[in-house]
Design a protein around this nucleic acid. Sequence first.
DNA 1: AACAACATGTAATAAGTTACATGATTGG
DNA 2: CCAATCATGTAACTTATTACATGTTGTT
Lengths: 185, 185
Amino acid sequence: MPKDNMARYIILGLLSQGPKSGYAIKKWVELSISYFWDISYGQIYPTLRHLEQEGLATMKMETADKGPSSKVYNITDDGREELRKWLRRSEEKQYEILLKIFFGSEISKEELIKKLEGFISKRKIDIDVLEKAEKELRGTPKKDPNEINMLLITTLGVMSYRTEIEWSMRSIEMLKDGKKQKNKK
Amino acid sequence: MPKDNMARYIILGLLSQGPKSGYAIKKWVELSISYFWDISYGQIYPTLRHLEQEGLATMKMETADKGPSSKVYNITDDGREELRKWLRRSEEKQYEILLKIFFGSEISKEELIKKLEGFISKRKIDIDVLEKAEKELRGTPKKDPNEINMLLITTLGVMSYRTEIEWSMRSIEMLKDGKKQKNKK
DNA sequence: AACAACATGTAATAAGTTACATGATTGG
DNA sequence: CCAATCATGTAACTTATTACATGTTGTT
């Protein structure tokens, strides 16, 4: 079983958007997904070598006009296939779905919409659970000195999940519109 | 340098709220903070033993009326001190601050408020960065097939951060009110 | 009798971070 | 010339997960 190995898919995903060096991958992660996922050079360079060995990427030395030369990696068809397999698998990590949306151009919009709908259902259940916990907290006359602190965190959970649901619904609409716009103008 | 080791502080934090067994700790994490932090038995049991060795917790076998007997851990004064040290340090991990709010009853409300104010400032900067990235994305006539996907994720980032700011402001108010209410009725 | 829940634990493995080393090039 | 940025890499370490083993008690 291929385990999680998010770094692998993040790198594959970024390469699917165009050839990049290890250094460039780090920059892109910082720029685009660092707010919910991070990656270090200690993961990037070994993973790139590994991807090459597996035939999922090819390497080419490139002497740039500016700066030192770099090893630029290209994704192969097998690499793209591997990426799609991951994109289609079900998610196990909390925010894995966001990565999949981010690299989602490799699969159809219908598939992404289905994922988002699943995400909405999951979040609705999560909210129910949290709200029950919240009620229990408010209901107890425990005088627990920690009660306020726990309540604050539960509240953030509910607020965050609601935001995620709202975003998901908007995103579904945007994906649907995006498709229609092809026929317009 | 004591490194991150979140498991350690989560366990210490939960013990500060009352004596618990390893099994109970796992249950509590699932119930209360699983939506932004997780922990496995493979971390819990060795960490508990370690905390005991360090004198930060004490263990007592307890034969319950129901079910098998369990090892119940109590936090010591040193353990509480260690927890406070962590609570007062500055955060390095993205959502470490939420853990600290959750276990925050060991430090003063003023200190928590200061942390939340810092969090708001940070998030305002984060939003600026994301919005700039968003504008750049919209501005390019690249026809990148991935553009929509990247935009969706950026949008979620901005929405989430705004939610976090709103929550922080509300939380600051609640913490201030909580203090006043002592004098009321 | 079977199953779910309670309860503890570990060995193997995987994943990720940190600190370090190295060196080229560019802009001031 | 110096600092910043570009660029690659690795060894040691820490952290975390997974799969397994083991046994009790309560419920159906």
